[in-house]
Amino acid sequence: MQDSPIRRHHVQISGDPRAPALLFAHGFGCDQRVWRFVAPAFEPDHRVVLFDHLGSGRSSPDAYSPTRHATLQGYADDVVELIERLGLRDVVFVGHSVGSTIGLLASLKNRGAFSRLVLLAPSPCYLNFPPDYFGGFERSELEELLRLIERNDLAWASFLAPVVMKNGERPELREELQQSFCSMEPGVAHRFAAATFLSDHRGELEGVRVPSLIMQCRDDSVAPPQVGEYLHRHLAGSTLRRLAATGHCPHMSHPEETVDVIRDYLREAAMAA
């Protein structure tokens, strides 16, 4: 079992095992616990599957690979592997922020596995490419983010050297780190941030065939409105919903609206089918 993706990703399954599966993917800087205000609402009529991306939350530290996880493709491979191992079919994938990009990429790797993609505050590219595309940030600004993460890593690195983490000679430290919400091991956050914020996945959008729901927040300074509109134009079969929710984390700040919008979408999808 040591090597199973279920253990690796600290998978938590709840709800009705015979009902359609809802797979929740968290974004950068968090873990599956961000879904705590949203996921329970779907338990009565869904099989709810939560997991941590490798390198985040309570995933197995040994399974994280600096090379595999240097790009979002590695994370998408993880998702496909997880779905196949769990034997899930017609999955409704709910991803937040970079979690939604990972879902889009995963849907290209196993086209049959997904029935719908729900994209919360998504962005295929955070960089500006004037005059055609405005992701919201200049490269120098995103490099500033990486330095900021490095700086906040420093506090970890000073007493949690990567060597200690890997050797497992002091398991209590790892335990402590994993207990703390949204924590990442030194170096992991930096690499994940680079993979997330410096990548450009616009080119992959045209190939996506799974119908999707784009949930665009108001005043989202990470994924601005024009990005949601861009996605809507380039994703075949997409629906764009503008939320009353403000900020970048509607599932945390406005869980009721988030649940309602997802529910409505799934209901309409079921009726259309």
Binding site: G27, F28, G29, C30, R33, V34, R36, S97, F137, E138, E141, L142, E144, L145, L146, R147, L148, I149, N152, S180, F181, C182, F197, D219, D220, S221, V222, G247, H248, C249, M252, S253
Partner: peptide, 25 residues
């Protein structure tokens, strides 16, 4: 909005990491 006081890097870090962290922890 707090965004007015946050340079771009801080802005992403605040919304993607700090706010959820605060909400849960």
């Amino acid at each position: 909005s707090i965004d007015r006081l946050l340079p771009a890097g801080s802005r992403i870090f605040f919304h993607a990491h700090l706010q959820p962290l605060l909400a849960v922890k």
